[in-house]
């Protein structure tokens, strides 16, 4: 790949980019109608990056995130995580990959309603087979880290939206993933709370080096990213003058289509 080694970004020991998509297509068939959610996406994300994906509704942002997160398979093309083509993996291997390398955060928080925060965070650890004492300790530490040290035994219905999202983040981090995939994490939150969540994610990226890929509608959120991908009609397109709209020069580096390929 031409892009390899370019830009002096952090690479895995093997020399592979953390995430790499090659000509990824996704076609949903609804009876006769075919919906092209992705139409040939090429993308590389290096370890430690903080990437924002923006674009109009229906442009394929969530679909793209699902491709990266091994939740769905592309109709065509390849997805590499640390150099491994995950499209060729079995469902079981993909589950293992999600468990160990990927953390998801969703707009609707997606917490299990009947579990208290602490147990929600413990679930990925349970799946990974971490013994009870150890996982309890880790879940407690994570909840402290996201600022919910005093809400550990609250169920989702007893938490505010922001608090729920913090639990979701703690859960996503439980198995120390390489990549945090967030699909509009602030979409359901007010500006102030949303900003706090973004700050938390930023901090994780900076302090722990977790690679973050965030889908957002919120230009303020995008502004926090060093790199912004603009998605339209299933393609990564030339960047928009976000800076002009937001009024912030900082950190905006919208990418061109096929950049780095």
């Amino acid at each position: 790949m031409k892009g390899k080694g370019e830009g002096g970004k952090a690479r895995g020991e093997e020399g592979f980019p953390l995430v790499k998509l090659v000509d990824v297509h996704k076609v949903y068939k609804l009876g006769e109608v075919e919906v092209h959610a992705l139409r040939g996406v090429n993308l590389e994300v290096e370890r430690g990056e903080f990437v924002a994906i923006v674009g109009p509704s229906g442009s394929g942002k969530s679909t793209l995130l699902n491709m990266i997160g091994a939740m769905d398979r592309p109709t065509k093309g390849q997805v590499f995580i640390e150099g491994q083509d995950i499209t060729k993996m079995s469902d079981k291997e993909r589950a293992k990959l999600r468990l160990e390398k990927i953390g998801f955060v969703f707009q609707q928080y997606h917490l299990i309603p009947w579990l208290p925060a602490i147990k929600s965070v413990e679930i990925p650890l349970m799946i990974a087979g971490v013994p009870p004492k150890e996982r309890r300790k880790r879940a407690e530490a994570l909840l402290h880290e996201v600022g919910l040290g005093d809400r550990m035994w609250h169920k989702p219905s007893e938490l505010s939206g922001g608090e729920q999202q913090r639990v979701a983040i703690a859960r996503a981090l439980a198995n120390e993933p390489e990549i945090l995939l967030a699909d509009e994490p602030t979409g359901n939150l007010d500006t102030k709370t949303g900003a706090e969540i973004v700050k938390l994610i930023r901090r994780l990226n900076e302090e722990k080096g977790v690679t973050c890929i965030i889908v957002t509608h919120d230009l303020e959120v995008a502004a926090a990213a060093r790199r912004v991908l603009y998605l339209r009609d299933g393609r990564i397109v030339r960047g928009q003058p976000l800076a002009a709209k937001v009024g912030k020069e900082k950190a905006l580096r919208p990418e061109e289509e096929g950049e780095g390929a």
Binding site: G69, M71, K92, A95, K96, F104, H110, I127, A172
Partner: peptide, 16 residues
């Protein structure tokens, strides 16, 4: 159903 999706997203296999 949604819980099933959540469990799978966080790494549960079909078997689990």
């Amino acid at each position: 159903v949604k819980e099933i999706g959540i469990m799978k997203a966080i790494g549960a296999t079909s078997g689990t």
